[in-house]
Every structure is written in structure tokens, then in C-alpha cells.
Amino acid sequence: MRVALFVTCLADLMKPGVAFAAIRLLEHGGCTVEVPQTQTCCGQPAYNSGDRATALALAKKTLAEFEGFDYVVAPSGSCGGMIRAHYPELFRDDPATLKRIEGLASRTYELTDFLVNVLKLDSVPGDFRGTVTYHDSCSGLRELGVKAQPRALLATLPGVTLTEMNEAETCCGFGGTFSLKFGEVSTQLADNKCGNACATGADAIVGGDLGCLLNIEGRLRRRGDLKTQVLHIAEVLAGRTE
């Protein structure tokens, strides 16, 4: 099975380890993983900012780069949701491309969703030890139905105890450019999330989207918490990738 990794722009720039962890997990599940080298961004920032033309151009670019694979997997519910839930809407007036886009959308998965529902993994190589609490990112949760999948995978790790936080499904306040435009409100929402997460006493806050995780970690550190780890689910599940 040839699987293309959609790296995501945030993993590429901020946390390459997340993409390597995703590759390790996919290979552990028996996939042949390829990484199209010209990929950049799915176009969501443009799409959500009202710049439909740029979003459309980036969607076409993504289509050309990823169309030839059995599956496309992204370590992000946000980018996965953009391709799966929103690309078809972008091409509503272009029936020829729409068919191809719908094909791409139907083959595109968020990482944990793919590991559980396509690869049907029942073990992962991770060796994390400690308590974690899981933040449900909005796009993954509400556009792709990612809720049980990461928890099922965490449950296969003997050293991990999951402690649920209050309001796990409430937005952390990231919202892409929202975090810059409405900084005070965004910070407040991140602060609520940190409060709920820390109240569990977990060693690590885990999530499936780097946008949320940067936001949560950024607020957590500003609050003076240098101890609680903030980790992408791929890093926890894959263990050491070096």
C-alpha cells in the first residue's frame, strides 16, 4: 500500500519529529511511505481568510502532488479536514476536477484515524511512560470524527495512563489567523484549556494538531509551567524516531 505523507507546513517548519514519527507509525503498519517533495500547504489559512483564489490554487497543487497514491495521511485533523471536508466545496463549479478531488478526499485520512480504521493497528512502538490528557482538536473531532481513535491507540501503550480533562472538546482558541487577530481572546481560550489540562495533573498534554499544541504550549510556558510536556500524538505513539 503506497501512502503519501502530507507533512503539514507546521510539522515541516516547527516540529519535523512529528512527521518522522508519522512515517515510523505508517511503516510499522506495513505501508510504503512516500513524501512528495514539492508539497507546501493545504491552503486552509487562505480558505479561512476568505482568499478563495489562493486556496483553490493550493488545492490544485495538492491534487497534482497526491493524486497518484492509495492513501494520503496527515498528522493533523485540520489539514486532513481541509482536504476531506472542504476541497470538494472549492471545486463545486468545476465538475471535471470535482470528481478527482472527491477521489482524493475519500482517500485522505488523519493519522490516528488511518492507523485505527484502515491499518487496524493494535500495537504501536511507543514507549512513553506517564499520565497524559488528550485535547480533541476541533477539525479532527467535528469534521473527521476523530475521538476514539487516538484514545484506542494510547490504550495499547502499557506505560500510558489517560486522564480526561474537563471540556476536552472545547476549542483551545488557536483558530489559525484568529490567534493573531484576536490575540487576547485566543489567549484566554488557551488559558482555559491549560487550566483544564493541568487540573488533571497529567505529565503531558497530547493532541493531534500542531496548531493547537503550539498555542497550548505557548500559553502554558507563559503561565510559568515549564514542566508539563506538550506532545503530538504521533510522537507518543511512535516512540524515539532517532
Binding site: D12, L13, P16, F20, Q37, T187, A190, E217, G218
Partner: peptide, 24 residues
């Protein structure tokens, strides 16, 4: 250009090399 973020939050720094570089 990101005061909206950093007025209330730190920004976790990247690791220094992009995935693209490391993968290559």
C-alpha cells in the same frame, strides 16, 4: 508581526532545520 500571539503567549521555537531538509 505577531504581537497578538506573543502578548499573552510564548511561541515555542522550532528545532532549527525543516523536515524537508532532514528528510532529504
Amino acid at each position: 508581526l505577531a504581537a497578538g500571539w506573543t502578548n499573552g503567549r510564548d511561541f515555542p521555537a522550532p528545532e532549527g532545520r525543516t523536515f524537508r531538509e532532514l528528510y532529504k
